Computed example of a mutant assay.
Amino acid sequence: MTAGSQTASGADPVEIEPHEALARLRDGALLVDVREMDERAAGMPCDAIGIARASLGDEIAAVAADRSTDLMMICASGQRSLLARQQLLELGYTRVVSVCGGFNRWRAEGLPLADGAVDDDFAQRYARHLVLPEVGLSGQIRLSRARVAMIGAGGLGSPASLYLAAAGIGTLTLIDDDKVERSNLQRQVVHVDARIGMAKTESARLSLSALNPSVSIDTRETRIVAANVESLLDGHDLVIDGADNFPTRYLVDAACRRLGIPLIYAAVHRFSGQISVFDSRREDSPCYRCLFPEPPSAAEAPNCSEAGVLGVLPGIMGLLQANEAIKLILGQGRPLVGRLLCFDALDASFRELQLSRDPACPGCGDGAAFSGYQDIARICAG
């Protein structure tokens, strides 16, 4: 009799070998993985049910109401599963065994794993996400497969890209044609003093890759214009608008509407910021031109170099953009669609305004007609 076939006083053994467990699983037995959620995120046996040992007494009845159900317990090495077996016997379950050697043996013997099994780096890096029911393993995998286009690697793009990289977004595409200047460093925290003169996309890539090497960083050192806007954005799951000029914002808004990509907009001015989400996939969603049908004059909306901006303000608004991006990818919470969230840094207060779709909007209204990106670019000229 082998160690993996240790027999109890009843008909069933105390422990069985992993290959025996697989055969019983295929015959209808239930395999319960009693490791913690962050451990299971690194991989589970195929068709196993995850219930942490601490929750076993409360949750086992939901999957095995019949106490004669054929149950197999598995953990990492076979120790906790023995304790779990004893716990279930004391609850009146009559057919419970432990898998000898646990998941370590199961994987070492090349037995089938559940889809979406991940490595130890994944499990450790995202451990605090994996224990959130609203994220969990499936949500983290969605994040790891997402493609996000970041318009601008400046004040808004810096915090948004840092936190999206940390969150495990699969691919970040950075689109910017500027170089790092010393005046950027007061707010553009993805850059450092030693990279003054370097392309912002490359400087950001270095910082983001150092933070999370598993994220793919694509760089596009170019300005968005009518001729390239659609090709730059196509294939992404969402777009974050960190642009600092109106021609780019109008072009990006039009392209996102035509491509059906959600756009997360934000802007900052001196001590105030605003953010909203424009999602053309939703019939009730306004677009950027519902908010600004025509561009304001230079006097009405001076840029940061002319008007100044509190350094922390783009950080606050960029983090809110990252939060909206994660919510959209996970399908959790209520996105800022039809809502304009305004922040006053001096008063430390938020104010929410309802932003309805405008039937007369030149971008998405009932009579709106697309006549080309070049025409859209012209509305900001002069």
Rank of each mutant, 00 (worst) to 15 (best):
G116P: 01
S231R: 15
T171D: 09
N228R: 07
G139R: 00
Y250C: 03
E221H: 15
G260Y: 10
T248P: 01
R187M: 06
P133L: 11
V252E: 02
H236M: 05
R125W: 11
D234T: 15
K179E: 15
P133Y: 10
A123T: 09
T222R: 11
M150R: 01
V131T: 12
G157M: 06
G116Y: 09
G235K: 07
P213C: 08
V180I: 10
D176E: 09
I217A: 01
D244Y: 05
F246A: 02
V131M: 11
G116F: 07
G197T: 08
Y250F: 14
R205S: 12
I224W: 02
A194K: 12
G235Y: 09
S209L: 15
L233A: 05
V239A: 01
Y163F: 12
R220E: 14
G170C: 07
D218L: 14
R205I: 11
G197L: 08
V215T: 04
L211K: 04
L238Y: 04
V180E: 00
V135F: 06
N184H: 06
R147G: 03
T222A: 15
D241H: 05
I261D: 00
E134P: 05
D218G: 12
R125S: 07
S214V: 13
M150K: 04
S161Q: 09
G242N: 03
A117I: 08
I240E: 00
Y126F: 13
S138E: 15
L137V: 15
G139Y: 02
L211C: 08
T248L: 05
I141Q: 08
A204K: 01
Y250W: 10
L174K: 00
L156T: 03
R257L: 14
A146Q: 03
A166N: 07
V215Q: 00
V148Y: 01
N184P: 03
L259Y: 06
A243F: 05
R128I: 14
A226M: 11
